[in-house]
Write a protein that binds this DNA or RNA. Structure first.
Lengths: 347, 347
DNA sequence: TTGAAAGCGCTAACAG
DNA sequence: CTGTTAGCGCTTTCAA
C-alpha cells in the first residue's frame, strides 16, 4: 500500500482533488454525506497530508536546524535537550547536525540547512572555525535572510542574535573564589585555548589576579592539545611547588587532573584546590567531589530556541540581542572553605 | 535580499526558467556565454536550489528520522552519535526527536516524521510505550511503507529491521561472572523493569542461577520506580546479609548504589560486588571504579543507520533482519578477581 | 455543492 | 541553443 495522496482519494470517489481537500478540512462547502465518506476512507487508509508539499506551499517548514560541535560533550547535550524541549513545545521539530569541531563539516552542514529545509538555525561554532576565524558560510546565511542564533562559541563578525555564557565573569569569579579560600598561586588548564570561551575565561582570571595585585605568569596557563599527555603537563606544572589552585576549563580535564594529582599523592584540596568548568555528571561522583562552574546548558538551549522562534514568527525587524547567561559556582569538596571577608558568589 | 529562485535569475536575464536550470547544471545545450553569465550571477547572489522543491520532485528527502527516549542518557547519546556519523557519511541528514519516555510524545513524533519529511526512521521505544505495549502508530508507518529500524527497546509486534543488544546473554554472562568471582547471592537493581531490555537481563540472570543450581529468589529483584528512594530499597535489600553481589541495570543506579553502600560502610567489592550496565562516563571515575557491561552504543547506531539506508536505497524486498550485538564486560575494581576454572568472558 | 486553475520551486521530456 | 509543458502534492481563489 503506497502512500495515499489526495489524488488517490479523489479518483477513488470520482470527485476532484480540491473537493477532497475541502472535505478533509471539514469545509462547509462540502455536503455532509461526501465529507463523511471521504473522512472515513482517509482515516481507514491512514491518510496523512504530505508535509513536503505543504512546506513548499507555505514556504516554511516549522523546523529549526541545530549544529553543535560535539554531542558527546555533556554541555552540548544539555543545550540540545533544552532546544528540543522548547522547540517542540512551540510546534517546531529539530534537524540536528554535528560539526565534529571541523570547519569543513560545519560549512557542509550550514549549506545543507540553509537550503530551505529549516526556518532558522541555532549553532555553536566548531573549534576549527573559531581558530580559522572565517565566517563566510554564515555571512551567506545572513544574506539569504535565514534567522540564526549563535550560542556559546560565537563571533563578532556576524550580526545576529546570540546567547553566551558570561565567561569573562566566570573566569573572574572563579579566580576570586579560589583566592578567597586562601589560594596563592592559581593555574589554568585548558583544552579549548583556541575558543572564544577559553580566552574570555583567561581574561577574567587575569583581571582577578590584577585586582589582587598578583602578577600574571604565562607558565600558569597550561594548554592541552589533542596529542598532549595531560599527566606530563601537570607534572611540569606542579613542579612549581607554589601552585595551590587549578582551574580546569572543561569537566573531563578537571576529573583527569584530579586523578593525576591523587596518583601523585597530592592532597586535594589541602595542597591544591581544583575548580572545573561544566557541571556535568562526573564531577559530583568523583572523590573528592569537584567544585564546578555550571553554565546552565539546558537554560541556554531554551533561551536560544525561544529567541529564534520569536524571530521566525515575528517578521518585524527587531534589533539583535545578545543574552549573557551568568554561571553558578557549585561548591563541593575539591576546594577549601571561603575565608571571611570575601563575598560569596551568588547564583 | 530574499532567497533567490530560478525565476528571479530567469527574469533578470530575460530567459526562461528551464534555461537557467540547465545553465546552472552546465548542460551542453546552453551556450557558453550564457552559462558563464548565469553561473557568475548565481554565485555572486549565493543561489541555492530549494531543497524542499527537490524533495517534492524526487519524492525523497535524504533525511532520516531518529527518535530516542532520552538524550541525557549516555547510551542513547552514543547511539545518536553513531547514527549521525554514518548517516552523514552516506549523504543523509538527521531529524532528531526525543520521546522523553512518553507514549503520547512518541506518537506525535512518529506522525510528524511519517508525513514525508524523512525517507526512513530509527527509533527506540519509550518506556511508556513498552509498558502499554500498543504499537498502532508504528503499524501505520509500516502500512505506509516507511522503512524503519528499531533498536535496543524493540517489540515483536512490529515486523521490521532491528538492532538489539544481546541482553539475555549479558544478564547471563554478568551473573556467571559474579558467581565466578565467588559471589553466593546476587541481587538485581532495576529502574527499567518495564522494558524489554530489563526483562531479558533478568531472564539471563535466572538462567545462570539455574545452571549454578541456585534458587531464584524474588526478593533479589529490586524494582526502583521514579518515586522510590533508592537508599531505602538498598537498605532493605542488604538487610539480607547474604547478599554479596549486585547487578545494577543502568549506570546511574550503579553509581548511586555504590555510593549508598559506601555510606553504609559496606566494603566494595569485598563485602558486596557491583556490576553495572552501560559503560558511560561515570563508572570509570568513581572509587572504586565500577565493573561495567558495555553495550557499544556507537556501534549500534552505525549498524542501525547502515541497515536503514541500505533498505531505503535498495528497493528490493530483502527479508527483515535482527542484529544481535554482544556486550562486553569491562572489569574494574568493584568486583573481585575471577577464581580459576571459570572461562573469562570474551569481547 | 463541486470543480478548474494557478502556483509554491524545480526538473526533464519534448518542441521549436 | 532556448522555450514550453507537465508534474511532484497540496491549498486556495474563482467559476460553474
Amino acid at each position: 500500500m503506497k502512500k495515499l495522496t489526495l489524488k488517490d482519494i479523489a479518483s477513488h470517489f470520482g470527485v476532484s482533488i480540491s473537493t477532497v481537500s475541502k472535505a478533509l478540512k471539514d469545509s462547509p462547502e462540502i455536503s455532509e454525506a461526501l465529507k463523511l465518506k471521504v473522512q472515513a476512507f482517509a482515516e481507514e487508509r491512514n491518510y496523512r497530508p504530505n508535509r513536503i508539499a505543504l512546506n513548499l506551499l507555505n514556504k516554511r517548514t516549522k523546523a529549526i536546524g541545530v549544529i553543535v560541535p560535539n554531542i558527546l560533550n555533556y554541555f552540548f547535550t544539555q543545550v540540545f535537550y533544552g532546544i528540543e524541549k522548547t522547540a517542540n513545545s512551540r510546534g517546531y521539530s529539530i534537524i540536528s547536525c554535528i560539526s565534529d569541531e571541523s570547519y569543513k563539516k560545519e560549512i557542509q552542514t550550514v549549506e545543507l540547512l540553509g537550503s530551505g529545509i529549516v526556518d532558522g538555525l541555532i549553532l555553536s561554532l566548531s573549534e576549527e572555525t573559531q581558530a580559522k576565524d572565517s565566517m563566510g558560510h554564515l555571512k551567506n546565511l545572513i544574506k539569504n535572510r535565514i534567522p540564526m542564533v549563535l550560542f556559546d562559541r560565537v563571533t563578532n563578525k556576524i550580526d545576529c542574535d546570540k546567547v553566551v555564557v558570561d565567561d569573562f565573569e566566570a573566569g573572574y569569579k572563579t579566580t576570586k573564589y579560589l583566592l578567597g579560600t586562601g589560594c596563592k598561586k592559581i593555574a589554568i588548564v585548558s583544552a579549548i585555548f583556541n575558543s572564544s570561551v577559553g580566552k574570555l575565561r583567561v581574561k577574567g582570571y587575569k583581571k582577578a589576579l590584577e585586582e589582587a595585585a598578583q602578577e600574571f605568569n604565562d607558565q600558569c596557563i597550561v594548554k592541552v592539545g589533542k596529542q598532549d599527555d595531560l599527566e606530563v603537563l601537570i607534572s611540569l606544572l606542579i613542579a612549581d611547588k607554589e601552585i595551590d589552585g587549578i582551574i580546569a576549563l572543561d569537566e573531563m580535564t578537571a576529573v583527569d587532573t584530579l586523578n593525576i594529582l591523587k596518583m601523585k599523592g597530592v592532597e586535594v584540596p589541602n595542597q591544591i584546590s581544583i575548580v572545573g568548568f561544566t557541571n556535568g555528571r562526573l564531577s559530583k561522583y568523583v572523590t573528592p567531589a569537584l567544585t564546578m562552574v555550571s553554565q546552565h546548558g539546558q537554560y541556554i538551549g531554551e533561551l536560544a530556541a525561544n529567541i529564534l522562534i520569536d524571530r521566525i514568527e515575528y517578521e518585524g525587524r527587531m534589533p539583535f540581542t545578545t543574552k549573557l547567561v551568568k554561571t553558578t559556582l557549585i561548591e563541593r569538596e575539591s576546594t577549601k572553605k571561603l575565608k571571611t571577608g570575601y563575598d560569596a558568589p551568588t547564583a
